[in-house]
Design a protein around this nucleic acid. Structure first.
Lengths: 333, 333
DNA sequence: CTCCGTTGGGCAATCGATTTCCGATATCCG
DNA sequence: CGGATATCGGAAATCGATTGCCCAACGGAG
């Protein structure tokens, strides 16, 4: 099973010590700066070290120091175009602290999420950043993992007793609704996505709340359920049958919005020029589809997650605020 | 700097041995099956192990066995919607061999790619899977890294002396051109993407080749350069100024195609109903944008990369063939 | 009944760094 | 100048598993 390829041996700290005529302890101290070392000796060590182009064995170090300088990142589904953005942000933020990212995609299945946590714990990662795939089913595994390593929930939350870094979803919805009403849309509907994701339900809740506040006599126009790309076009059509005077549709994410936009285009051709569609997350899909969307401050989110891990930040800072990105899908035309 | 959080100690193999009244060696052998062990003793070990819910320390194991069961995956840019697909495929394929993925995104910068390789080598990954961000600049670092660990190039190639797993790009272009001519398009143009990616230049080359073969008297209509989302619309417009009778545009990837499609839609409105646009990679952008595209067999690609790493497969198997996915962007209408 | 071979358990070395403890100088002060 | 105190280098323990080697027990063959 393991490959028998003979690669050349890398020098160890012993080799460096031998070449410099010093002890391994001294070499270690020079290289890690753990304790002051005489300048001439330090120089000798450095010379020997890069004569051999020595690089310390991270595995041995991890065993001794009980730190792997690695964080696990568990995400629901990397095909969901939001998560590449999150992965990128986390990767950037952790790199600044010399941490590497062990990525696991659980494919939206809580059981795989659980085994991902086990895997990462076995690997003794210093922390696990997780966007829980299910708002309730993910909680027990999270809780039990939290006894073994630092857990930080990011973007989504399954257990609000554990640390989390999140963005204010309601504020995003508010920005969209303000934009839509400011551009003259009165009757606005909402198409949701997988309600078992905490962010989705927060978006739907926020829509209902603002919708009722704005128009108390009318019950909010909400389609709840999980509408991925393909089904969102048909759900849009049935929405428009049910409420034909709808002028704008707020979608729970960009992918759904893209499907809705196909229908919207038909509408526009049929003489409803002002019809608007909005997405959420400002993913590549929003960019390429000319969709108005909401951008989450992902760098800050990732930084906050790192701060929580390091114990720098408090457990529950006020959530971060997203911003609006206006594009053609809400244009007047 | 390190967090002082006191987590409970995990039991070691010594603890299990003590509880079972046996030696660590025996416990190890039972748990790893390295050597046959008496059935009653084996049972005693297993009981003790899960009484303590013992999980072996992967770090210690790695140090001893000189294997980390980890592969590094270096990608140019996770925001490019193709790479999430690749990451997913690699993650799946490696999981089946109990390998974890250490992901590094180099942001299309060769220097960061080089330091990513160093990082992964320091971490003693068993193999590095890399999609080199630059067809020439990436080569030296790859070559030198290959002396320390098994390198497998995946999707893109920078050094054809090193193992690689790739898909036949030319065949994808051929499928697109066949489809376009079969649906009645004669004058077909091409918009390229970053020519320093090996796949991009292969796609452009293939287009030129087939284009000349089909119509020897006419020089191929090719716009080369790196046209990301935003600029692809304007490049499309200038293409159409230069060759006004163009009936279809083949784009080097889905993101570019999405931009071209915006222009194509204007065209259609202006009375050119048959105007077609195609993408490449069949990413989420193609799905949401209703783009005809080419799908690469990514599971097979990832499996082949794993086989190359394990030494199961030969160094250069014939490249895998992609398939055509027809959608609305090449419809008649 | 003896001898040899096999099976299976344990001791101790090992992987490669870090870190504790110790001792030898060097420094400082009264 | 003696003694307390830093300072700094080295020997050896340590992290937690795997594994080479030894040896006891057992079974089968002669």
């Amino acid at each position: 099973m393991p490959k028998p390829v003979a690669r050349d041996q890398r020098p160890t700290i012993q080799d460096v010590a031998a070449l410099a005529g010093l002890s391994p302890s001294t070499v270690s101290r020079v290289l890690s700066g753990a304790r002051p070392v005489g300048p001439d000796i330090a120089e000798r060590v450095r010379q020997a070290a890069d004569a051999l182009s020595f690089r310390p064995n991270t595995v041995a170090r991890s065993l001794r120091t009980q730190q792997t300088s690695t964080v696990g990142l568990v995400i629901p589904d990397i095909i969901n175009p939001f998560f590449p953005l999150l992965v990128q942000a986390v990767e950037r933020a952790t790199r600044e602290h010399d941490l590497s990212v062990l990525l696991v995609d659980c494919g939206n299945e809580p059981e795989r999420e659980t085994s991902a946590l086990d895997l990462l714990l076995d690997r003794r990662v210093d922390a696990i950043f997780i966007s829980p795939c299910h708002s309730t089913a993910s909680a027990p595994a999270l809780r039990s993992a939290s006894r073994r390593a630092r857990i930080v929930q990011i973007d989504r939350v399954a257990d609000d007793q554990l640390p989390f870094a999140i963005v204010d979803q309601g504020h995003g919805i508010q920005l969209l609704l303000e934009h839509l009403t400011a551009t003259g849309r009165q009757h606005i509907a909402f198409i949701g996505s997988d309600p078992s994701a905490s962010t989705s339900s927060l978006r739907a809740d926020a829509f209902e709340r603002f919708s009722v506040a704005q128009n108390p006599r009318q019950s909010p126009r909400v389609m709840t359920g999980d509408f991925s790309g393909a089904s969102s076009a048909s759900i849009t059509r049935s929405l428009l049958e049910q409420w034909p005077d709808t002028e704008a549709i707020v979608c729970a994410n960009d992918v759904i919005a893209a499907g809705a936009l196909l229908v919207a285009r038909e509408r526009r051709l049929e003489g409803l020029p002002g019809f608007a569609v909005t997405g959420f997350d400002n993913t590549m899909v929003a960019e390429t589809g000319d969709l108005t969307s909401v951008q989450q401050p992902l760098s800050e989110l990732a930084n906050r997650a790192v701060d929580l891990f390091l114990g720098v930040a408090a457990t529950e800072p006020p959530p971060l605020l997203p911003t609006l990105v206006v594009r053609g899908s809400t244009g007047p035309r």
